[in-house]
Amino acid sequence: MTEGLDNLDSYRRRFLTALGIGGVAAAIGGVRIVGLATAKSDDEAVTDEARWGMLIDTSKCGEGCNRCVEACNEENGLTGFDRQQTDAQWIRTLEVRDKQTGHVTSLPMLCQHCEHPPCVDVCPTGASFRRADGIVLVNKHTCIGCRYCMMACPYKARSFIHEELTDQKPWAPRGKGTVESCTFCVHRVDRGDAPACVEACGEAANGAMMFGNLNDPDSEIAIRAKQVSSRQIRADLNLNTAVRYEGI
């Protein structure tokens, strides 16, 4: 009984929070996550009610455009050492050329936030984990830097920090000797914002990237994903990725 009441209470609070955030969003006019029913307050734990996902329309991806990459680097403080082989890259633009037809597509490649992530399977300490809302993260407190996850990831989405870092962003801790990858800008998602890359893509008027809750049938991304044909990269592995691509 009490449990039921508690639940009721938590739903009510979440609803009110949602209203509040919605109001703020309308006032600020920034890019907010569509489907606010799942936006949470600071003290609430994430649940599997949401599964965050991304839908990328590669046909809108401007040639030579690198805005998503720049935004990610800026947001997460990924300043390199001009050492391309060892500098971290959370998102990169990929040129894909069909060997037979010569057709070229460019698209952003990032952690695909799989439902069955190989990186999580292989991690010996459980530092590589999947949050209840589907975001795949590295818990850098328990990462021992074995790099097995990098061996296992089919998307080459992860980077190892090869040297000492300074001037990290307070919301994106990262340091030498641990592995990291795209976090879906989890600090932004938790406060109801879309990831920096998505925001930047929208500001660049490309609007190629859409972010939202795949579990909410009324969310913009769920509606769009249902309407148009999209695919997973390496769908043959059956990992059920949260990042889907149109136009490839």
Partner: peptide
């Protein structure tokens, strides 16, 4: 070795103002 040693710069969405207010 990982965490920032100073507060966030002013003006960021995830800044210290929100936190200190809280």
């Amino acid at each position: 070795s990982c965490h920032a040693t100073v507060p966030a710069g002013e003006g960021h969405g995830d800044n210290m103002e929100g936190n200190t207010q809280g």
